[in-house]
């Protein structure tokens, strides 16, 4: 479903991704891990075209997403993204945040979009907060709204870019629980994370990047118990 071919990315003289090739199947849950600055987030941001490759291709369902603006636009409405800093719309309340894109992009009626939004808001446990503005919510609540907002577009693929890195420690669990509840429901998930226990528990596949190079691609048991590369061993030794 997602096919990345020989993807490279440079910002001016700084090469962030080097010749990455990768195939991800429908419904798979993939955790991208590695040290800061290894290119995990940049790789993730190529899947919905927030970054444009310097070289190589990204295909989603056989469609080269960078071939035309139309392809990009189509892909974006079927790929949901959750950001480290939530990026909720501060001038809209919770319900409006979640129902905005379904109304304006998918052209659903307001009634239908709000009905679906309310279901999703309930799913992430925030039914008591629908009329609140983002400023009145805690970090964990904001991120759960952001997840509901992405899900409202009924995406085939969900991208999570360090979804818990900006949270206070006591709020990490509530967000991870929501993400876990989505895993293995048919939606393909790519998660950039520093939460190793979470990755171990929820992911089907671990991809380890360092300095823009894809060093390991294996299942969690193998990766955490028996990493192939020295770089991965060092990394795990430091953080576990």
């Amino acid at each position: 479903m997602i096919q990345i071919n020989n993807l490279s990315k440079s910002f001016k003289n700084n090469t962030v991704l080097k010749d990455i090739s990768l195939k991800i199947n429908q419904g798979e849950v993939v955790a991208l891990i590695g040290p800061s600055g290894s290119g995990k987030s940049t790789l993730l941001r190529h899947v919905n075209g927030l970054e444009t490759p310097s070289n190589g291709q990204v295909q989603v369902d056989g469609v080269n997403i960078f071939e035309s603006d139309k392809n990009l636009q189509d892909i974006r409405s079927s790929v949901g993204m959750v950001f480290q800093h939530f990026n909720l719309f501060p001038h809209m309340n919770v319900l409006q945040n979640v129902s905005y894109a379904p109304i304006k992009v998918r052209k659903l009626s307001k009634e239908l979009a709000e009905k679906k939004a309310l279901e999703l808001i309930e799913k992430v446990g925030l039914s008591d907060h629908i009329k609140k503005n983002p400023a009145q919510l805690s970090g964990g609540q904001k991120q759960r709204v952001a997840i509901a907002r992405a899900l409202a577009m009924e995406p085939k693929i969900m991208l999570f870019d360090e979804p818990t890195s900006a949270l206070d420690p006591e709020m990490v669990k509530e967000v991870l629980d929501v993400i876990k509840s989505l895993a293995h429901t048919g939606v393909t998930m790519l998660i950039v994370t520093h939460e190793m226990n979470f990755a171990k528990e929820v992911a089907d596949r671990i991809i380890f990047l360092e300095e823009g190079i894809l060093l390991e691609d294996s299942n969690p048991v193998e990766f955490f118990n028996n990493p192939k590369t020295d770089r991965a061993k060092e990394f795990l030794a430091k953080i576990l």
């Binding site: 927030l50 974006r76 949901g80 993204m81 990026n87 894109a101 304006k104 907002r149």
Partner: peptide, 9 residues
Amino acid sequence: EAAIALGVP
């Protein structure tokens, strides 16, 4: 970025 990711023109 959030708007672009949601496919908002």
